[in-house]
Amino acid sequence: MMERKPKNIFVEGPITPIKIGNSIENHSKKTGIGGHSIFLGQVRADVKEEGTVKGIEYTCYEEMALEKAFEIREDVFAKYPLTCMHIYHSLGYIKAGEICLFVFTSSKHRKAAIDACEELVERIKKEVPIWGKEIIGEEKAVWKENK
């Protein structure tokens, strides 16, 4: 088996519905797959004391983030019988309503895909050094906190 190497998970700007659609289509020849699970994170227009969130500016510690994402990826591949796994996270400014996280798992049967997808999302949010700054107006911003 080929040794897997860290992949770039980062995308500059929002993740477009076209990219997501293409990504699904790319699996049509892998006919051993019986189920996909997809999580899409969307930027929410939270109403805060300072005003309404217009978008989030994402930054990361890229070298560490890619190492961490690779470690999580290997762990989840080892734990579940998956055929495929894809992780994309946005960097830069993402407007409210746009997609900033795309996690896509595929397996022979649904359960592994669903459980792996959920575990990936939780671990990405908790362990990967990415920061979101919620932009409120021309001058105001609040650093995002993960719940």
């Binding site: 994170g41 994402y58 990361c60 510690y61 560490m64 996270h89 900033c100 996280l101 999302v121 990405i124 949010k125 908790k126 362990e127 990967v128 050094p129 990415i130 920061w131 979101g132 650093w143 995002k144 906190e145 993960n146």
Partner: peptide
């Protein structure tokens, strides 16, 4: 060495 505030990706 990196100084890392709480992560808030996703």
């Amino acid at each position: 060495v990196a100084l890392l505030p709480p992560f808030s990706g996703g």
